[in-house]
Nucleic acid binder design. Sequence first.
DNA 1: ACCTGAACACCGTTCAAGT
DNA 2: ACCTGAACACCGTTCAAGT
Lengths: 176, 176
Amino acid sequence: MPSNRQEVENNVKKQEIRDSARQMFLAFGYEKTSLAKIAKHAGVTANTIYWYFKSKEELFASVVEEIIQAFLTAFKTRKSESLRDNILWVISVLEVSRAFIVTIHEKSRTSQVIADVHQSFHDSLAEISEAYLLEKEMKPTEIKPYITLVGFVIEGILMHELDEKEKNDIVSLLEV
Amino acid sequence: MPSNRQEVENNVKKQEIRDSARQMFLAFGYEKTSLAKIAKHAGVTANTIYWYFKSKEELFASVVEEIIQAFLTAFKTRKSESLRDNILWVISVLEVSRAFIVTIHEKSRTSQVIADVHQSFHDSLAEISEAYLLEKEMKPTEIKPYITLVGFVIEGILMHELDEKEKNDIVSLLEV
DNA sequence: ACCTGAACACCGTTCAAGT
DNA sequence: ACCTGAACACCGTTCAAGT
């Protein structure tokens, strides 16, 4: 609970900037979205963004973090379906954010903030999947590489644009 | 065979720029490598690059094309080993160019030249692998999705930095 | 044909100054 | 506390001018 009205307003403005950033980044990509563009869309001046975020990269990291949180919440509350359905569900949920996947990997090499957000995403996903696969009685030693492999395939499917048939055929190959 | 000395000189200078570009792109990444930096390293002025290449993106595409050609030549003349060895060989050869993989995917979304180079790489690889897997008597309908899956796993391994054990464990899961 | 100096519009970021 | 105008150094790219 915010302690006063001021704080609400602050968070609202910050969220508006984040929302504008998410939309512009998704529409035009990270490099082709200038801070001026985001600021205009959010109804502020470019340098106002620096009051709320330390840099363009931190703004991007903040956007990504929000998306990952929403994804993890949805993932945790989802009841266990077949492995195949779970994988297809993850792909469908992340599909709208597809444009971010490449940028996250690109920026992870030079930005600590984004590398951290990226890493914590993979960790959370692995933790949840591990419990699931143990339930399904997969051999413990096979679980870790298998989770990594599934992650790579999901990323691959999201990064390259495959049609439904190609997508289904590949996911079928992952059946244990 | 070049028709005269002039042409040799031309190609030499162009190659020098390409070489400088490759080294700088690999060392600092695409975005953090300015044309001024490349030009200085090659001993020319920034705008001289525009005599040989239409844009920074075309220069990058040219560098990538050269790497892909070298890779495909090596791949074609290599004699068939086990599938596992072939996959590990591809990974080891591409490892030095790892930094490019992400950038290629990023730029493929907005640059036609790079998308074309990227696509022709996947096509060549699929074509070669298909012949190989037919020899090994894999079912024709399974070949295409399998090749795509292997490609995604190779890209995944290259994009994330895995140690030898993780790498081997994942490649083992690809055994047919 | 090949190369340059100077300029263009734009970029992320900083900061002193305002409220 | 929050926001801005003006400036900074830098960017990819263009082009008239040189050889």
